[in-house]
């Protein structure tokens, strides 16, 4: 019977390993996000930053970088969405301003989420946004046109081989309030 006790011990140990691995798979999500933030794996930008130049950033000379703005409307959201200027040249560690224009082409109220993405991914953590419409959901009334400002700067810590940065915004429709009762059926 001594053998049985040992057996249940290893059994319990294996079952807890299974449970741990199940939760580990969920832990992969925050781990992945941290990993992405550190390595710029997927070109994601996380949250707003304030304009603050660290000492070690000051050591590097400011240089000129070309930023191109891209827009993309996904899953057929009925919105016209484009940058007001396609390309700017910015100096590192200097705040720049641009804007995007969004226009609702329907007679319905639309709620929108806009997701930023930076290419090359490794430059993502050096594109710091002070103000951006991507931080929160945006609402457009029927046929409304809005101009959404973006204030950002590129840290001088950006890699030396980075000369062109692509800043892309993808717009998704998250909610639509019908103002008419048309039903298209399937």
């Amino acid at each position: 019977m001594a053998k049985n006790n040992f057996s249940s011990k290893i059994f319990l140990y294996l079952v807890s390993a299974v449970i741990f691995m199940f939760f580990f798979s969920f832990m992969l999500v925050p781990l992945y996000n941290v990993f992405c933030e550190v390595t710029g794996l997927n070109g994601k930008i996380y949250g707003p930053s304030s304009f603050f130049i660290k000492d070690r950033e000051k050591e590097k000379d400011s240089r000129e970088i070309r930023i191109k703005f891209l827009s993309q409307v996904n899953e057929s959201a009925p919105v016209k969405f484009f940058p007001s200027s396609n390309e700017v040249k910015v100096w590192t560690n200097k705040v720049s301003k641009t804007s995007y224009i969004a226009e609702n082409t329907t007679d319905k109220q639309l709620t929108l989420t806009i997701i930023p993405s930076v290419s090359p991914g490794l430059a993502a953590e050096n594109v710091k946004k002070i103000q951006c419409f991507c931080f929160e959901e945006q609402v457009l009334m029927p046929y409304e046109r809005q101009e959404w400002p973006v204030r950002f700067y590129v840290s001088s810590e950006v890699g030396d081989n980075v000369n062109d940065i692509y800043l892309s915004y993808t717009l998704f429709e998250t909610d639509r309030v019908l103002t008419d009762n048309m039903n298209h059926g399937k």
């Binding site: 390993a17 741990f20 691995m21 199940f22």
Partner: peptide, 10 residues
């Protein structure tokens, strides 16, 4: 034991 729970998680 290490990976089937990860599939379950996915």
């Amino acid at each position: 034991i290490a990976v089937m729970p990860v599939l379950a998680g996915a």
